[in-house]
């Protein structure tokens, strides 16, 4: 079963995301900020990371940069999932090594479409 790490400081968002990803056949774990996500990632790389941007302690962008610097840290597919919805943020995220970008609010259709495009699910 593919693993998904959900990183968001909102418990509500994490719950919604977990529901969507579990329905799509992923085994999910959760972190409430980038620092905790980085510690979890160092234990075992997930196949996929759903990543919020603005979080206390360590934000999503800093987590992503740190992840990509770890040996083997280029493996996980990272999808940003944030209310930041302008070109500058998207460019910054892709530049830091994000594979995809979801602008909140999102739903199961958007997630499924992104996963199909990334080859993580059959169309």
């Amino acid at each position: 079963m593919k693993t998904c790490l959900i990183v968001d400081d909102s418990r509500v968002i994490r719950k919604v995301a977990r529901q969507i990803f579990e329905t799509l056949g992923f085994s999910c774990s959760e972190s409430e900020n980038g620092q905790l996500a980085l510690e979890a990632s160092q234990q075992a790389f997930p196949d996929l990371v759903l990543l919020d941007w603005n979080m206390p302690v360590m934000n999503g962008l800093d987590y992503l940069r740190a992840l990509r610097h770890l040996p083997g840290g280029d493996g996980p597919v990272v999808i940003f999932c944030t209310t930041e919805n302008d070109m500058a943020h998207i460019q910054m995220a892709l530049g830091a090594g994000a594979n995809e970008y979801i602008m909140k609010p999102f739903d199961a259709d958007i997630v499924r479409g992104k996963l199909e495009q990334l080859g993580l699910m059959d169309a």
């Binding site: 302008d86 998207i90 995809e100």
Partner: peptide, 24 residues
């Protein structure tokens, strides 16, 4: 809408072929 451009459209193609004309 922001919803519509996210359904099935890879972010790279959004960046390349669209311009943002209002927040969403």
């Amino acid at each position: 809408s922001q919803f519509e451009v996210q359904r099935g459209l890879p972010i790279t193609l959004l960046m390349k072929y669209f311009q943002q004309i209002a927040g969403d």
